[in-house]
Design a protein around this nucleic acid. Structure first.
Lengths: 341, 341
DNA sequence: GTCCTCATTGTAAGCGCTTACAGATCTTGG
DNA sequence: CCAAGATCTGTAAGCGCTTACAATGAGGAC
């Protein structure tokens, strides 16, 4: 509760320590060529005056703000908040902050938010997925701003990427179901128009099934918004079909939860009456009844990797243009042998 | 894809438009006393040059950065991400950005994060709850930084607050269970040491039960970390009691989900064998089997209200010191008459 | 003792914008 | 037609830091 001069400036510290402003700045920034004695004097003065550097002035003079911007469709999805969480933790080690902006899957909003971030002077930008307005990538390139896309695996020379293959595990899920004897599959997908990840999953589901000789009928392909309620409704709709599917592939775990809850409610047994798969492996997936077969999206590892990669780019260190993580299948008891035929 | 001078400055715009830098700045900031003609000339020049103002320079000169800082324990909890989501949307209308920092319920980390935010020059700060290090509030006051606490309802002259009463709905939940005939209650609480919200709920559970003459026995009070798995384990522990509780009060919906899933797994019927209550009303609560009795925490309304209140404070407009929202009980089918006696 | 090198410190010029103030222009009333 | 007042625009002084460059001083080699 010390009574002190409201806001000490760097110059005040310099005066108090009897050194130049440059020296104070050097101490502050851990620059080399600073003697122990001087450092101690300055640090004492800083403590005494309760000095806090002004971020804006520092940013203006040094041309960096010590923060990166991340554009995420929504924080509503636990898989994104988990990712952001680990991204933030890891960036902290690099002494770097996070500016988060959301755009609700609207790429025009994403572009607008990107402009705002650039205006704020972020040192780098992380984009999610591969679907963006051309202007967004353009702007980043023209500004020479380090950036990264993630959560996908498109090998685009314009877009460095740290991600995983959305299609491969989707194919494996279908193969898993076919092996179990399922022949009438259905898909409940998130909207795909501005979401390459959802699109990759959906296309992979459809293509794999078709190539195996068991194409998924158009009536069994439902696209709904993200949400439990939406999953539940889609399930009910599928059950009105003359020949209901024996297995349902969901574009994400949340939709799968909706499906499972709706199934329980209408007394369908999982997996005896219908098998269910998700995609994400949210914390509660192993606790569902039965535990949910899904794909373990490496959200946390992705956060760490993205943090390291963007920092490397900002520092001008070499960083691979294209990095991939595994997204393994997690087979649990929500899928089982088909009993319909 | 226009080929243009990399980074136009305000001075370039002024030259291109044939006006002074002051006029450009005025147009940029929508200042009064700017003629229509001048405004149009400047706007044309801005478009032509693709000028983007430098946030750092602007912040340094104007002493505000157009962003507020929000300190949130974690983004892991959907109720917080929903709140942040609406906070961000609403602030956008006020042309204000959000800097988010998390501290994982560690108040020393919260203090450190606060310092960082202040250093970045945020125009205001939002804190969650009433538990903070004294130094944090001190720092805010000494800096004369507009700030707000929320999510609680402590009427502290030092801390303006926009929140709701955590204790009242907790009391109503207990009364609801007592009315249904339950006499052996249990509580599964989140850690309370640095979390006044959890503490208020827990204390209200205990006090209400005790005052009604049915105190909750110490063995039936379990504190666990946030999470589905944690709720499930706590349930299993409670079931090992010689006389298991007939109703379980959970500190939040996520714990309640864990309890419900564990109950299903061990073939306990809800609510016939045991009644369950939550607290938050997450999107999936109404979809559980059976739907969960809980408290509808007004996360979204709180986001809007907090946004308006902090903006008012920043602009020096009057704003109530203490604002309260309703957090109504939502009675669903996870609670029912006690059948044990 | 002189000269050179290198580690350390200081000087001062910005970084790109805002804004107080002053100056210019335009109305309007007398 | 002029002065007063209102409205618009320009000038220039910062905002609080960083950093290129210059200056200083201490050792060492000769």
């Amino acid at each position: 509760m010390t009574k002190e001069i409201p806001n000490a400036l760097l110059g005040d510290v310099a005066r108090a320590a009897g050194v130049s402003t440059a020296s104070v700045s050097r101490v502050l920034n851990g620059a080399p060529h600073v003697s122990q004695r001087l450092r101690e004097r300055v640090e004492a003065a800083i403590d005494k005056l309760g000095y806090v550097p002004d971020g804006a002035a520092r940013a203006l003079a040094s041309r960096r703000i010590g923060a990166i911007g991340v554009l995420v469709p929504t924080l509503d999805n636990p898989v994104f908040s988990a990712w952001i969480d680990s991204l933030e933790q890891r960036l902290k080690h690099h002494d770097c902050r996070l500016l988060i902006a959301t755009y609700r899957y609207d790429l025009d909003d994403e572009f607008a938010a990107l402009r705002t971030l650039i205006q704020q002077g972020v040192d780098g930008v992380v984009l999610l997925g591969h679907d963006h307005r051309e202007e967004s990538i353009d702007l980043l390139q023209r500004r020479r701003l380090p950036f990264l896309t993630c959560w996908h695996n498109v090998n685009d020379p314009d877009c460095p990427c740290v991600g995983f293959d959305n299609a491969l595990p989707a194919r494996q899920l279908v193969e898993h179901l076919l092996t179990l004897g399922h022949r009438r599959l259905a898909v409940i997908s998130a909207p795909t128009r501005t979401n390459d990840r959802a699109r990759a999953r959906l296309n992979s589901f459809l293509k794999t099934a078709e190539q195996a000789g068991y194409p998924i009928s158009p009536g069994n392909i439902i696209t709904v918004e993200y949400g439990i309620a939406e999953g539940a409704e889609a399930f009910e709709e599928l059950m009105t079909r003359p020949q209901p599917p024996t297995a349902i592939l969901c574009g994400n775990d949340t939709l799968a939860f909706g499906v499972m809850l709706a199934a329980q409610r209408s007394n369908k047994k999982i997996p005896e009456d219908v098998s269910i798969t998700g995609y994400d492996n949210l914390p509660q997936s192993p606790f569902m009844n039965p535990p949910l077969t899904t794909v373990a999206v490496p959200a946390q590892a992705l956060g760490d990797l993205v943090a390291d990669a963007i920092i490397a780019r900002i520092n001008g260190n070499p960083s691979p243009h294209h990095q991939q993580l595994e997204a393994p299948l997690v087979i649990r008891r929500s899928t089982g042998p088909s009993t319909s035929g």
